[in-house]
């Protein structure tokens, strides 16, 4: 669990850290969308250069991002493998039954690999430089237009914020209960599948009980402080765009232009 880099926040004060979370969220989605437009080596080079500039601006070591890729490596290799063995066309290098390695297959495999790495890099960058709560604020702000479709945006945002707030608390609680049960002789993660599933019961039941307890206490506390639903409430954390957000948006346009020039 601790090895996972993606989804974690690394405090910092760099240019990327200071960007408005909405900018970062939109830019990340936009980048992930245009990754699929790249179809030549040069266009992938442009995309990689773009990511490298972003990483440099975040002043986070590149090793972090490489580590973010590691948990996904089997999925990536599996997909790349499928592409290599099942794409037809071009010069055939190797064939065995219906498996064949072709020129197009190799190129497609390499492209897919690049796409995976780019997407993971960008999403890692997003979570490493953005506090979960500001990310939730950004989601709320971006979903606001959905109010006209009667989507309860403020309630959804509250749910998201409470959920994010309690991830670390529940993680702590999980560790504590696991330790308490290990001290009573439970072996987590050993034995057969059935045994392992049985070992989870002494962990899950207390966790559920605890979560419901927390939920009830929190609801009472919110009620006591005058919470009466989302309508008519003010916001304490107000998001504001700055000039650097314009720069970030502008560089996305430049990146798109370069991509369009280099793709076929």
């Amino acid at each position: 669990m601790n090895k996972l880099i993606i989804g974690r926040y690394l405090p910092g004060n760099s240019w990327v850290h200071q960007l408005d979370p909405r900018t970062k969220l939109l830019a990340s989605f936009y980048f992930i969308a245009i990754v699929f437009m790249a179809n030549t080596w040069l266009s992938y080079l442009v995309m990689f250069a773009g990511v490298m500039v972003m990483i440099a601006a975040s002043r986070i070591r590149i090793g972090f991002f490489l580590r973010g890729v590691r948990p996904m490596i089997w999925l990536i290799l599996f997909t790349v493998g499928l592409q290599i063995f099942f794409t037809t066309g071009g010069h055939v290098y190797w064939q065995w039954g219906w498996l064949h390695v072709t020129h197009y297959g190799l190129i497609n495999g390499a492209y897919i690999f690049c796409r995976f790495v780019l997407i993971i890099f960008v999403s890692t960058l997003l979570t490493l430089t953005t506090q979960p709560l500001s990310l939730a604020d950004a989601v709320e702000s971006l979903l606001r237009p959905l109010r006209y479709l009667h989507v309860p945006v403020t309630e959804l945002a509250l749910v998201l914020q409470i959920a994010l707030r309690f991830v670390p608390t529940l993680m702590d609680q999980t560790t504590k209960i696991m330790n308490a049960q290990r001290a009573r002789g439970v072996d987590f993660g050993t034995g057969g599948l059935f045994q392992q599933m049985k070992a989870v019961v002494p962990l899950l039941i207390p966790l559920f009980v605890d979560s419901f307890g927390i939920a009830e206490d929190l609801a009472t506390a919110m009620d006591a402080r005058g919470y009466r639903g989302g309508d008519g409430r003010s916001k304490f954390r107000v998001l504001a765009y700055h000039s650097r957000d314009l720069v970030a948006g502008g560089s996305m346009i430049v990146l798109t232009a370069l991509l369009l020039l280099t793709r076929r």
Binding site: Q173, K176, A180, P202, P206
Partner: peptide
Amino acid sequence: RQQVGMVFQFAENQLF
């Protein structure tokens, strides 16, 4: 672990 019994903080959380 049988030899060393541990009572954690708020040990009631371990009941299931």
